[in-house]
Design a protein around this nucleic acid. Structure first.
Lengths: 327, 327
DNA sequence: CTGTTAGCGCCTTCAG
DNA sequence: CTGAAGGCGCTAACAG
């Protein structure tokens, strides 16, 4: 691999001249530039990104940390992040936190490999984040609350969303409503549950614990929880799934038991994933402003990187998407 | 930001001792290690990843280059890549080639920022790849053919897949079959088309140019192409969409025109995306072994990185998934 | 077991 | 306009 030194030698100039020429400084004559460029091409010279980052002590790249690169859920969010970073000339890399403390994500967070990070990865512990938070290294948290001077949170209003979903069910005359939760400790699931309970309370309805099922945000989890619900006999008239994936699983469970949705039971989800409009029946759900969340996160990073102070908490609102799964 | 130097000073040892201690070398006594670790913690020391990469001249990370990080298509493939890289202790980052020559992907490819790359990004030109290909930098190409000593190709058998799809239609008594292609120059679309033509020929059927529509691999593209097909009057009895996304768009177009699938027209797609089993009717399609492709790509990289020679071309076979869109 | 030292490849003052 | 030189933070001989 040719280095800047080789180019200098071939072009017959000093190393610094090559550096200036390559970075298109005005202090170099066109003739010299041409000579240098020619030599560089001839040697198939590629600059070493690290060496230059090391010198400039900044990388111009932002990390988007996801719990699983293969997860289909993030595409809208990623788009928001991607577009803003691109138009501002920042590089973006995505990495996964699969593998816990050994994961690529943690490595990038801890070692000084990027200028900032956006985190949407429940499998990274608060601890790690706290350890990595430091002056001059903006971290945006999309999926949890965490008090620290150097992290800012962008949250979807899960509480209100949960409230709205539940109220929608109530307004359609459902009085007995089950809730299928996400995994334990999932902050967003909990907030949705709180909204659920509040809506029930405000309408003088009570919540039976037998209609609270633990899921895990996966399709299988929703399927399983629903099967249990069915096995219990005495179905509720409405079910609020803490996310759409689980609702899709639930739909399948109901279908297998010849229970008609929304004829026999109404269901509502959360997220508005792409699939939601294709299920049978199409899923009524709460839409998260994912693109906006991504774009906002990226904007906040840019502001911080340019030295501005930003608030430490932002809340985005949800929207009810009415389709056909509630009667 | 504290450096190794600061740690050394605080711990009262030499710089190299700190380095050894931090990398857990056996040559350092436990007592010294403890002292160093303590000092490091106190200063909230984080090693600078670049500096160390620069020194070792390797990064231990692989880039997965996608044309769009927000694309939903890659999840299976990514999973394959991710799992293999993780179990082998390599870091994986994904980056997008959106933005062409200025994109993050191109930067990573050209500058020496990763040890190897897997490319599935039609919007990166052959040129760039050729320029980046060099000894000691394995590149795996998933989406095109390109002759070079330093790149290896992993391809799905698009020809055979196209052949199988078409033959399936023919075996169900369809004689007039339309083909909706991908974007111009898309290598995979072209191969599928070749398979299509071959199947027709082998069954003594002829292919009318009026039943060849140009799409672009997007849902909208499929929708538009189908609308045109319908507007032409005189529908074919079968349509082969070069990918599932377009088939989903086509389904919508047919529905809007009250044309029943598969009653009035049979359709088949390619890819077997997640959505395919949820459409109405569920889509018959050709499944690509995406997970396998990803895992294979990663394995090939590992082999090359450890100095082994691998073949320069691998072909993976497809599978017909029969659902309900062909009668 | 620990310290000294010479770079990795690049950028950037500071003199010519 | 060009060249010499110092150093970014870290690793790995090599000496003690």
């Amino acid at each position: 691999m040719a280095t800047i030194k080789d180019v200098a030698k071939l072009a017959g100039v000093a190393i610094s001249t090559v550096s200036y020429a390559l970075n298109d400084s005005t202090r170099i004559s066109q003739a010299t530039k041409d000579k240098v460029l020619e030599a560089a091409k001839q040697l198939n010279y590629r600059k070493n990104g690290f060496a230059s980052d090391l010198k400039r002590t900044k990388t111009n790249t932002i990390a988007l940390i996801l719990s699983d690169l293969a997860g289909p859920f993030y595409s809208e969010l990623t788009k928001g992040v991607q577009e803003v970073s691109m138009t501002n000339g920042y590089d973006l890399i995505a990495c996964s936190s699969q593998g816990g403390p050994q994961s690529t994500a943690v490595k990038f967070l801890k070692e000084k490999r990027v200028d900032a990070a956006i985190i949407l990865a429940h499998n990274i512990s608060d601890d790690i984040i706290l350890q990595s938070a430091r002056k001059g290294f903006p971290i945006i948290l999309l999926d949890r609350q965490l008090e620290n001077d150097f992290v800012v949170q962008v949250e979807v209003d899960n509480y209100q969303g949960g409230y709205d979903a539940t109220e929608h069910l109530i307004q359609h005359d459902h009085k007995e409503i089950a809730f299928i939760s996400g995994p334990q400790n999932a902050h967003d699931s909990e907030m949705r549950f709180n909204g659920f309970k509040a809506a029930l309370r405000d309408h003088d309805l009570i919540h039976h614990t037998k209609w609270l099922m633990q899921g895990d945000f996966t399709r299988e989890g929703g399927y399983r929880a629903t099967k249990i619900l069915i096995a219990q006999g005495n179905l509720p008239s409405g079910v609020f799934y803490a996310n759409d994936e689980m609702a899709v699983g639930g739909l399948q469970a109901f279908r297998e038991n010849k229970i008609n949705v929304p004829g026999d039971v109404s269901i509502i989800g959360f997220d508005d994933i792409q699939l939601a409009e294709f299920t049978t029946p199409p899923l009524t759900t709460i839409k998260q402003p994912k693109y906006e969340a991504g774009a906002l996160a990226m904007h906040l990073i840019l502001q911080q990187l340019s030295g501005q102070i930003v608030n430490s908490y932002y809340k985005l609102s949800t929207e009810l998407i009415v389709r056909k799964s509630v009667k």
